[in-house]
Simulated scan of single mutants.
Amino acid sequence: MNKKVAVRDLGFQDYKKTWDYQETLFQEIVDLKIKNRRQGTTLKTPNHFLFVEHPHVYTLGKSGDEENLLVDEAQLKEIGAKYYKINRGGDITYHGPGQVVGYPILDLDNFFTDIHKYLRFLEEMVILTLAEYELQGQRSEGETGVWLDVGTPFARKICALGVRASRWVTMHGFALNVNTDLGYFDHMIPCGIKDKAVTSLNVELGKREIDVNEVKQKLLVHFKTLFEAELIEQKARV
């Protein structure tokens, strides 16, 4: 079992370019696992954790409904956003500037083979990070992600999750709203759930600008603890 995780901050990157990079890393791990099985070798599989910030983009998961995107192609151009159908679970999600997006590309054979536990650990990483800002993040039954004030008329989502897994290798991940322009959520039905609001860290903390790098470091601390991982920070490459 290899619990080393290479951490790379890709900065501000186009969604499709990053998706292709994810696919490359994902396939390298899958191919190595297949080789190990066929040849009886025990080569260690790598793990990756990518941080990135995307230009405005809407992505629709495999189980999503296109009607949850409320703008057409011409309107997308007007608001400077792109739209992709992708191969993760879940419905529609928005990514944009001021949002911390994390893509753990892990071989869960190195940690635990339980997708449910994996999703709960990602949520817990975010919940523990929010607690450091004196916010009580919560899970909402039947709705993946992290919320505030669950069970009240003021319930609002602060972090979306959507993953893909094959042969226990993961890709895609989470999107935590930090200094995000929440107006872009008006052009979609977030995660296909009507009448549910969204929020961000800076809105919850009185609209002050939040240090994004500080948030990333807090997330990594909790990721390391939860997954009992050894983090190795590396230079970005796409």
Rank of each mutant, 00 (worst) to 15 (best):
L119P: 03
P104V: 07
V163E: 09
V238F: 15
F112K: 10
E204D: 10
L128M: 12
V198A: 02
G11H: 06
N110P: 02
F26Q: 12
Q22L: 03
E143W: 07
K77N: 14
E123D: 12
S166T: 07
L106K: 02
N36I: 01
K4H: 08
M125V: 15
V163D: 03
L76T: 08
I29D: 01
F185K: 01
D14L: 02
N47S: 15
L106F: 14
I105A: 00
A229C: 11
A74Y: 08
K117V: 07
V126R: 01
N179D: 10
L70P: 05
V52G: 12
H95L: 06
Y94T: 09
H222R: 11
H222I: 03
I158W: 10
P104I: 11
P104S: 09
M1S: 14
V30T: 15
K218D: 08
G173F: 00
E23D: 15
L106D: 00
L226D: 00
G206N: 05
K216L: 14
I232L: 13
T113P: 04
N36R: 04
Y133A: 09
V5R: 01
D211V: 04
L69Y: 06
I79V: 12
Y133L: 07
L182A: 07
S166D: 04
D109R: 13
F227L: 04
F49V: 04
D72G: 09
I193L: 13
V203R: 14
E67G: 10
K3A: 14
N177A: 05
V150G: 10
A74V: 08
L60G: 02
T225L: 12
E66V: 11
G40C: 13
H187V: 07
K4D: 09
W19N: 10
R38V: 14
Q13C: 15
G151T: 09
P46F: 00
G98P: 06
E23F: 10
E134N: 11
T59W: 07
V203S: 04
V215P: 06
R208G: 05
V30Q: 04
H116L: 10
Y15F: 11
R38E: 13
G142T: 07
V203E: 10
